[in-house]
């Protein structure tokens, strides 16, 4: 055993990969690379200014927007619409999702209804919402709320279904009350699923924000983008789109933070 024979070959390593590990700054680098490429392309003329605006021009437009104070004038109403609409939709969605998860009759009654509502393009209902809730903020809140409601319901009842049944049996075996089992076992157990559903719901809320501001909104990021689009003002269009993207990234980061705080127990 001491001397390796001539035929000895080292066993090749083949167990790597399939395990994502965090890589810092790579995400930022991709963004920067794409922007730099666009800048070089538009400056050299490879990309015509009609196809894509110069990133530096977009930045300048954004600077103007900020200096003129219009940025906050647009962002303020948008954020409040997003906050009110999403809060309504998400809280209602979580409540209904939990009820579906807990009660067979409610499940039998509402799951088909939710399945019927889910694929409706909420934008198509905008005229209806205007009639129901008025052309003012009401219809905008309703659109965002409705759009976030269905994915939240589906994520929530799925999460409740996935709560470990042995934990619920354990609670019953110790004589815990129904309320205690729901509050101390079902809800915390469903939290990971609810939070990952929230990521999707809030992204949808941002999408619908633009749709909501298509009608009768003087200020708002959506109104700003639509106005720029109508005028083919690509710099302003892109400045607006970038604001939405940043909003999306911030929301996702916020949920990530909440997850890290609430779900430290996850293995």
């Amino acid at each position: 055993m001491s001397e390796a024979p001539d035929t000895a070959r080292r066993v090749a390593f083949r167990g790597g990969g399939f395990a994502p590990t965090p890589r810092r700054f790579v995400g930022a680098a991709v963004f920067i690379l794409l922007i730099v490429l666009a800048e070089i392309g538009t400056r050299t003329g490879v990309i015509s200014p009609l196809t894509l605006p110069k990133p530096s021009d977009v930045l300048a437009t954004f600077g103007d927007l900020y200096r003129s104070g219009l940025l906050w004038k647009h962002l303020g109403p948008s954020l409040s619409r997003l906050a009110v609409g999403a809060t309504l939709g998400v809280s209602l969605g979580i409540s209904v999702g939990i009820l579906i998860g807990l009660f067979s009759y409610i499940r039998a009654g509402l799951v088909p209804l939710v399945a019927a509502l889910f694929p409706i393009p909420k934008i198509a209902l905008l005229p209806l919402f205007v009639i129901w809730f008025g052309i003012d903020e009401g219809s905008k809140y309703a659109l965002i709320a409705f759009g976030t409601f269905t994915p939240t319901v589906v994520a929530t009842y799925g999460a409740v279904d996935n709560v470990d049944r042995t934990l619920i049996r354990m609670g019953q075996s110790f004589g815990l009350s129904w309320v205690s089992i729901v509050r101390k076992i079902v809800l915390p157990g469903a939290m990971p699923g609810i939070l990952s559903g929230l990521r999707i719901s809030l992204a949808i809320a941002i999408i619908l924000l633009v749709a909501a501001e298509m009608l009768g909104a003087e200020y708002g990021i959506g109104a700003y983008i639509l106005e720029a689009g109508a005028l083919y003002d690509l710099e302003r269009l892109f400045a607006g789109v970038v604001i939405l993207s940043v909003l999306g990234v911030l929301v996702s980061m916020a949920i990530g933070l909440i997850e890290r705080r609430l779900l430290v127990w996850r293995v």
Binding site: T166, R169, M170, F174, L176, S177, P188, W265, R266
Partner: peptide, 30 residues
């Protein structure tokens, strides 16, 4: 005696979001 017939399960059935003390508190809180 708070719970005359009490189980010990094969898979432990501990709440992963509660500490050791919290898991024991769970069955006393009610």
């Amino acid at each position: 005696c708070l719970n005359p017939l009490t189980y010990v399960f094969q898979d432990f059935a501990l709440l992963p979001w509660r500490s050791v003390a919290g898991n024991i508190a769970l069955v006393l809180e009610d």
